[in-house]
């Protein structure tokens, strides 16, 4: 199984890449902006970098890159399920429209409800 092991050189390289990404993300967080879109973009980039770091660790430090297909599936499955949790919950929060009259539905008259729409 030692075929799974990477040469030490690889670990060092991954480590350096992680540090570079770390300083990149810190630097980006200091970009001065008050604009909402820009801030959202920076947040997104920040978490994308975090994701990249996680992928580096998973692939090399945790040997998934050299792992079996089963390991790949198991490593990925939790994140897929997390995506379900996030997507369907945030969907509720992003689409909670203002209640009430904002919909401006035409008046429904007594006895004509089924024709209202």
């Amino acid at each position: 199984m030692s075929s799974q092991a990477n040469p030490v050189k690889v670990y060092i390289r991954v480590f350096i890449a992680l540090l570079v990404l770390l300083f990149l993300t810190v630097a980006l967080a200091f970009v001065p902006t008050r604009h909402e879109t820009a801030r959202n973009l920076l947040t997104t980039i920040g978490f994308t970098i975090a994701g990249t770091k996680a992928v580096l660790i998973i692939l090399w430090f945790m040997h998934v890159k050299a792992g079996t297909r089963l390991t790949w599936i198991f490593a990925a499955s939790a994140f897929v399920w997390l995506l379900i949790l996030f997507a369907l919950t945030m969907n509720d929060y992003m689409t909670r429209k203002e209640i009430a009259n904002v919909y401006r539905v035409p008046t429904v008259r007594a006895g004509s409800m089924n024709d209202a729409r």
Partner: peptide, 20 residues
């Protein structure tokens, strides 16, 4: 105001409904 779209400080808008 009610029912109108309000521009917010720092970008973004909101519709002025009861909850707002």
């Amino acid at each position: 105001l009610y029912g109108r779209t309000v521009d917010l400080e720092g970008g973004g808008t909101v519709i002025a409904d009861e909850n707002y």
